[in-house]
């Protein structure tokens, strides 16, 4: 564990909490992509199946359980409790176009051709693009509430911090995992455009609004 990894995990946790609290407090999930939330649930489920057969540390186990629970909790709030507020007409990204290529790639490029390993690889590939439906929703409506922007910023920061974590681990522990690194860089790049808008607009108190 190093400071980048810890801060990355905390940003991730904070992003998830921001989203849950936003939906709960406003009694609305307007502006949030249910498709992205489904993809994240698929990501965590396929990755954290190793809860059954691998123990890393209490920290690791607790975080995995929290991510899984929060992810399914978000889906419950969006698709059941506050379904009436869900922006279904704008959330039109076809997630099969992300799931199918991630599955095929996981079968071809992996560390070992074993069921759990392939599921882990699939989760890494899918996570790298899971935010696309959310970014697509923001681009379709042309704006995002500040709180949604904060959520996206924390989620992007988590990925950027993980890159620093991998650089650190490469030098300090001689540890690296090319699959995670390449997918993580792809994922971080997807946030770059958003980071720019966040820093130039949201932090100056303006709403995140795309040019018409």
């Amino acid at each position: 564990m190093n400071i980048f990894r810890l801060l990355g995990d905390l940003s991730h946790l904070l992003a998830i909490i921001i989203l849950l609290v936003k939906i709960w407090k406003t009694r609305s999930c307007a502006g949030i992509s249910g498709k992205s939330q489904i993809l994240f649930a698929v990501v965590y489920t396929s990755r954290y199946l190793d809860l059954i057969n691998a123990f890393i540390s209490p920290y690791n186990t607790i975080m995995k359980i929290v991510f899984l629970a929060a992810s399914y909790g978000t889906i419950y709030l969006m698709y059941m409790k506050f379904k009436a507020t869900y922006d279904v007409n704008h959330d039109t990204f076809r997630i099969e176009f992300l799931i199918a290529p991630a599955a095929v790639l996981a079968l071809i490029v992996n560390h070992a051709f074993e069921p759990l390993e392939i599921l882990w690889t699939f989760s890494i590939y899918l996570e790298s693009v899971a935010i696309l439906p959310q970014l697509f929703l923001v681009s379709k409506t042309g704006e995002a509430e500040s709180i949604t922007s904060h959520y996206l910023f924390m989620l992007g920061s988590y990925r950027a911090l993980y890159i620093f974590n991998w650089i650190y681990r490469y030098y300090a522990e001689n540890h690296y995992d090319l699959i995670a690194i390449v997918a993580g860089i792809v994922q971080t790049v997807l946030y770059c455009d958003f980071f720019y808008l966040y820093i130039t607009k949201v932090l100056k108190g303006k709403k995140l609004q795309l040019p018409a």
Partner: peptide, 10 residues
């Protein structure tokens, strides 16, 4: 080859 138990990140 890395085994699944080596995936120590979240």
């Amino acid at each position: 080859m890395k085994k699944n138990s080596n995936h120590d990140e979240l």
